[in-house]
């Protein structure tokens, strides 16, 4: 990992020194050991604080919507980030020429909550991890109560376990060795499990998750695809969803949010990692991704320049409604 971080640092410094980009988006150490922080480097001399490790949990592509379109941006990209950027480019959110993709292979993101739980530090409890290191297949947590050695595979984020595309695509440079494309768990495992439930059980499961929602919209803000300047949920005329944290309000949010991801979700799981209430939501977007694959033979971000299915039409479409 350290070697990879060194390589990213060197490339970031080069891009800034040679004026290829105005800013490089990467990570730096945060104040909590398990929580590196997205960071923005504008000066080659400042890249010494750039780091990379398995706890870098944000999808950095979400920051593109927050930057000026005139800015030339270098961005550290794993598989999911690079595929998200492809979709953003195909949706004309960004000019590909203005971006410089620093591709890195991904070994999967470590879920800090799982890591704490696995170490028996108490769910929702005490953030006592003082330092952390990754050693091959193991993660070493150091706390006031002693050291904990965890199996990396056990504490990976769920989305990363199902990831079929850990290597970045369409990059300007790719650092490190390819991670290879064998998902640790069946890619559609979550969808299969959900579909195996009865309609009543599915509803119960949905309700149990959605009704914990506090409408903070961390899922929306963490998602590279949620870039609308006005989200449907913020409209007042007409009002599309009840404003409250009632069942009606939270159900509407979760269903419509997922719907708007159809054919666009890169399955990065940033929504779940951002959620302060541990709400599961990738089962919905995974289902939509599989529908798009089965019905439109479309894999989000897999092919350069592939038109987004829901933003295109042809006159010889077999469905009557387009004619």
């Amino acid at each position: 990992m350290d070697e990879l971080a060194q390589a990213i640092r060197a490339e970031a410094a080069r891009l800034l020194a040679e004026d290829v980009v105005d800013v490089v988006i990467g990570f730096q150490a945060g104040s909590l050991a398990l929580r590196p922080q997205p960071a923005f480097f504008t000066d080659a001399s400042g890249v010494d604080t750039l780091i990379y490790n398995g706890f870098c949990q944000n999808n950095l592509a979400t920051y593109l919507a927050r930057r000026s379109r005139e800015e030339r941006v270098g961005i550290v990209c794993r598989g999911c980030e690079s595929r998200a950027i492809r979709v953003l480019v195909s949706e004309h959110r960004h000019d590909r020429e203005g971006l410089y993709l620093i591709g890195i292979p991904c070994e999967g993101i470590i879920d800090w909550r799982k890591a704490e739980r696995e170490a028996g530090l108490g769910p929702g409890g005490f953030a006592e991890v003082l330092s952390v290191s990754e050693q091959g297949d193991e993660v070493l947590l150091s706390t006031r109560r002693g050291e904990y050695r965890l199996q990396r595979e056990r504490v990976l984020h769920d989305s990363c376990k199902r990831c079929a595309y850990p290597d970045p695509v369409g990059t300007d440079i790719t650092l490190g060795e390819p991670a290879g494309a064998d998902a640790r768990e069946p890619r559609w495992g979550l969808v299969d499990a959900f579909e195996a439930l009865s309609p009543e059980e599915r509803y119960q499961s949905f309700v149990q998750e959605a009704e914990r929602c506090i409408r903070c919209y961390a899922c929306r803000e963490a998602c590279p695809m949620c870039y609308c300047t006005e989200c449907f949920v913020d409209y007042t005329t007409p009002r599309w969803a009840e404003s409250m944290i009632t069942p009606s309000g939270t159900h509407a949010w979760h269903i419509i949010r997922a719907f708007h991801q159809t054919g666009r979700c890169a399955s990065c799981g940033a929504c779940e990692r951002a959620c302060p209430m541990d709400i599961k939501m990738t089962y919905l977007t995974d289902k939509l991704d599989r529908d798009m694959l089965e019905q439109y033979d479309y894999e989000v971000g897999a092919a350069e320049g592939a038109p987004p299915p829901f933003a295109t039409f042809t006159l010889d479409d077999q469905d009557q409604f387009v004619r």
Partner: peptide
Amino acid sequence: QQPCLGCGVCTFLCPTCHCFDIVDE
């Protein structure tokens, strides 16, 4: 603010944040 996502986690989990919005449902 650069890394800030602009979500409501900090304020909604905050025990002292107390701003509210009045809505006619």
